[in-house]
């Protein structure tokens, strides 16, 4: 009798603890200032789940997930670049799941597969961050097209992300090739390279360098610029005519998670109004087309038809070629 009582006590304790908070380890590249709003909005409707963020740049998060392959620590990747998720998918790290509300998402922004491995949340597109003061100081016109950037008047005044270390850099490289074909794209980069002051490791850095006046023009993204403009940086954003590259923040479940149900709930939440509204605040371009802002729609229309799978497949070869031409030749 005592024994039964003891066992039932244990069971009671065990069951209450399973009703207590599920701790979900979520790896993300979303900027820190936005994380709190995602967390509180999700936990409000899912009080039994608690999100624990591990935040770092896309490259670090991807490397971390790959390095932890043998014993995954993450339950979900949330707000991580889709091209990174494609690498993880190729390595067999993702658990396929078709979340609720999958149909609501733009076809451009989901894994169009019978067993989808990831869903998009929002997108951000290339934009030029232009420092008004520095342009005025050198008395320069604002560039309008991609070709304008090869004009010698901008020599030493442009910063661009390095494709070998930055997702944004790789995104530009593949966008140019997809728009113009390889020979023309490389010829363009030859011209652009003559004007570049510095290739940066991260995609946000060219914009912050432009904001600080280190350069006049930073090839970056309008969504990074907004944050800097809010802090009164004297920059304008220009979307170069002729199409722009883009990348999305996406979410996926890590294979081997101990909290599959909770992880699925987080994926179900991606298509919600909350996530769409938070995505609008970031870039204006969300996976739920009806929520897009006016500026977001403008970028969305300028966005090229990006073939992520093609880009992922040719990634190392393209980066190698780029490095031989512009980085290691110095």
């Amino acid at each position: 009798m005592k024994r039964i009582l003891f066992i039932s006590c244990c069971m009671a304790i065990a069951s209450t603890s399973s009703f207590a908070n599920t701790q979900l380890a979520v790896y993300t590249s979303i900027e820190n200032d936005r994380l709190a709003s995602y967390k509180s909005a999700f936990e409000k409707i899912n009080p039994e789940i608690e999100i624990n963020w591990v935040r770092d740049s896309t490259g670090v998060i991807t490397a971390k997930l790959l390095a932890e392959k043998a014993a995954p620590k993450a339950d979900v990747a949330f707000g991580v670049g889709a091209s990174s998720l494609l690498i993880l998918k190729k390595e067999g790290l993702l658990q396929s799941y078709k979340p609720m509300g999958y149909e609501l998402l733009s076809t451009k922004m989901r894994d169009n597969n019978s067993n989808p491995h990831w869903v998009g949340m929002d997108a951000w597109a290339t934009g030029l961050c232009i420092n008004k003061f520095v342009m005025k100081k050198h008395n320069l016109p604002s560039p309008k097209t991609w070709q304008d950037l090869t004009n010698p008047i901008y020599k030493g005044l442009i910063a661009a992300p390095n494709p070998a270390s930055s997702g944004s850099g790789f995104m530009n490289l593949t966008a140019w090739i997809q728009m113009w074909g390889e020979p023309k794209a490389w010829a363009y980069m030859d011209g652009l390279n003559k004007n570049i002051k510095m290739y940066t490791h991260s995609g946000t850095k060219p914009c912050s360098m432009a904001a600080q006046g280190e350069v006049a023009i930073g090839i970056s993204s309008s969504s990074f610029a907004d944050n800097l403009i809010k802090r009164r940086a004297p920059i304008d954003v220009v979307l170069p005519a002729g199409g722009i590259g883009w990348e999305m923040e996406a979410a996926a479940i890590i294979k081997g998670t101990q909290h599959l149900q909770a992880a699925q709930k987080l994926l179900d939440w991606v298509s919600s109004d909350d996530v769409a509204k938070l995505g609008v605040k970031f870039s204006g371009i969300t996976a739920r087309e009806s929520f897009m802002s006016a500026a977001g729609k403008k970028s969305y229309q300028a966005m090229i038809d990006n073939d992520l799978a093609w880009a992922a497949e040719h990634r190392s070869q393209l980066i190698e070629q780029w490095r031989q031409k512009y980085e290691l030749a110095n």
Binding site: S57, G59, V60, T62, A63, N162, P163, A164, S165, S166, I196, M198, Y199, H201, R315, S316, I319, E327, L328, N330
Partner: peptide
């Protein structure tokens, strides 16, 4: 743009 070993490692590991 001055290449150095420590950043090369970073580019190989983090970037690629």
């Amino acid at each position: 743009n001055y290449s150095m070993l420590a950043t090369e490692i970073y580019k190989q590991v983090i970037g690629q």
